[in-house]
Write a protein that binds this DNA or RNA. Structure first.
Lengths: 321, 321
DNA sequence: TTGTATGCGTTATCAA
DNA sequence: TTGATAACGCATACAA
């Protein structure tokens, strides 16, 4: 490996002069500096990250932890994160699985964004206790070293239910997410509250898991129980898509017999026929916000917990009731 | 930060003894070792990755470079990679964008898998020249430090075309991928060869980009030119899905007027109606293979270039011609 | 303006 | 069996 020493030797100066030159320290002459830089580039010198990190106690790398690599939904969030981080001189790496949890305590990364409910809150709090900076997107955690940037799930669920009611629907199904999902719990809670505000509603809950298959199963159940037009609030779009796939094979028509609204406005919804009504929010902004908060935390700046606002996307999947 | 020194002090031994104990070196007594380990865990000691990497000149981290984070297609490949790597004591991190290219020369990672055509071959060869180990999945590169694990695109394209011909189709469209895609070029080349082997075929090429939108555009063109039933080979499933989305809004029926076959067997194809015929291969295995090759390269083992085999998945999207 | 020397946390060599 | 010490590559306080 070619190190600062080799550059120093070739330039006939000491290693500290090389270091100064490389770091743009004004102590060293323009010409010496230029000569050193030239030699360094000739030798293809690249500073060793481990050595630098060891010395500076900072790696300039941020990790984001995801439940899995199945992307679709994460793409834009990560893009938003990366843009902000790169601008600030940080690199972003994506990790999944408990094996990579070690990167944080080993100080390979300067901080982490967590969107992975399989990452135990207890573990996160421990890490925070030991001084690690974290931003969580999938739970509320109160600790000076942890910030959370959360979706306004309650507003979203309320918008969805009110839209269904406004369109004249009275019999409402809700397909939930997994019980351990913060987002699902929040959405469900707001849904129930909205529904309680209206007395004349029929409300049926179907347990789901945020994946397509549970949307399919829910569709089966709904068809089986069908007596009159109904509206369904799938707590995420993925399940709504599953529902579409099952219903399209049946005689039931979406937006006529079975009205559907989702949550997330994933890319795929644009291709649904009829257009799926859903709750939208900027995923890119979510990621960007998370990064900014993390950088502030690292810089020991004061940070408030942030919220990502949502809006209703109407669609023909919800017809008049 | 709590270091090996703190453990040594508390245990009343020297740092080297602690290091031995932590690394399970049999030189140190069972009891001393046990005591040290206990103290280390009490203090929440975690070895500093930078220091260890600096000393051992190895980080035990592998990076995979992707064009973007839009996952869908990558999920399984990454899963396959991770499983193998973790088993071998390596961590996997996912990177995107040229900003992270630096991780390799800075020796933050021990090697990389590349599936990102925006990563220039020239840059890869330079890295290889400087001793970095690479496995590429999206091009052929001949260098002792580079191995490639490629899909058997030609076999796949041949299978697809032969299937269409066997089903009685004579007028064939092909929707290509971007010109700079190795996979697209390979598939196209084999397609042309297959077609040339049969004299009585009509062959029309439509330029695509591997994304849904180009599938949609291709569908528009095909409908416009429609005179008799035609078969379409979309060089990836994504474009085939785009085609579905457009055709479903028209009077043309897939598998009757317009017959479609794709390539990749992405998860979404399972939900298509009618079932999209396509070319399948194990993405998980692809990733696993890539990881194994990389580990071999790092271990200075001799490696042959690997190939991932493909198979035909029939579907009702291709009816009789 | 440049050089010397020290330390970051680990591992590993050599002595004790 | 354990301890002192050098080295990994870099940054920097201090000396020259």
């Amino acid at each position: 490996m070619i190190s600062i020493k080799d550059v120093a030797k070739k330039a006939g100066v000491s290693i500290s002069t090389v270091s100064y030159a490389l770091n743009g320290n004004p102590k060293v002459t323009e010409e010496t500096s230029a000569r050193i830089l030239k030699i360094a580039s000739e030798l293809n010198y690249v500073p060793n990250a481990a050595a630098r990190t060891l010395k500076k106690r900072v790696s300039k790398i941020i990790g984001v932890y995801l439940t899995d690599f199945s992307g679709a939904f994460y793409g834009e969030i990560l893009q938003g994160m990366k843009e902000v981080l790169n601008k600030r001189g940080y690199d972003l790496i994506v990790c999944s699985g408990s094996y990579s949890h070690r990167l944080l305590p080993q100080r390979m990364i300067d901080g982490a964004v967590v969107l992975d409910h399989s990452f135990a809150s207890e573990e996160l709090l421990q890490l925070a206790d030991r001084g690690h900076k974290l931003v969580v997107l999938d739970r509320e955690l109160n600790h000076p070293n942890i910030n959370h940037v959360l979706l306004d799930n309650k507003a979203g669920a309320t918008l969805a239910i009110e839209y269904l009611i406004e369109r004249g629907h009275r019999k409402l199904y809700v397909v939930t997410g997994p019980k351990d999902s913060y987002d699902s719990r929040q959405r469900l809670q707001a849904t129930k509250q909205s529904i309680e505000r209206n007395s004349d509603l029929i409300y049926i809950e179907i347990e789901g898991n945020f994946n397509k298959d549970s949307g399919e199963r829910a569709a089966e159940q709904i068809m089986l129980e069908y007596q009159e037009p109904v509206a369904v609030f799938c707590l995420n779009d993925e399940m709504a898509i599953g529902m579409y796939n099952t219903l399209v094979k049946s005689d039931f028509r979406i937006g006529e017999h079975i009205h559907i609204i989702g949550f997330d406005n994933i890319e795929l919804t644009q291709y649904t026929q009829p257009r799926l009504a859903t709750i939208d929010y900027s995923k890119r902004k979510w990621g960007a916000l998370a990064s900014e908060q993390l950088i502030k935390l690292i810089g020991e700046e004061k940070v408030e917990h942030e919220r990502v606002y949502v809006s209703l996307v109407k669609g023909e999947s919800v017809g008049k009731g």
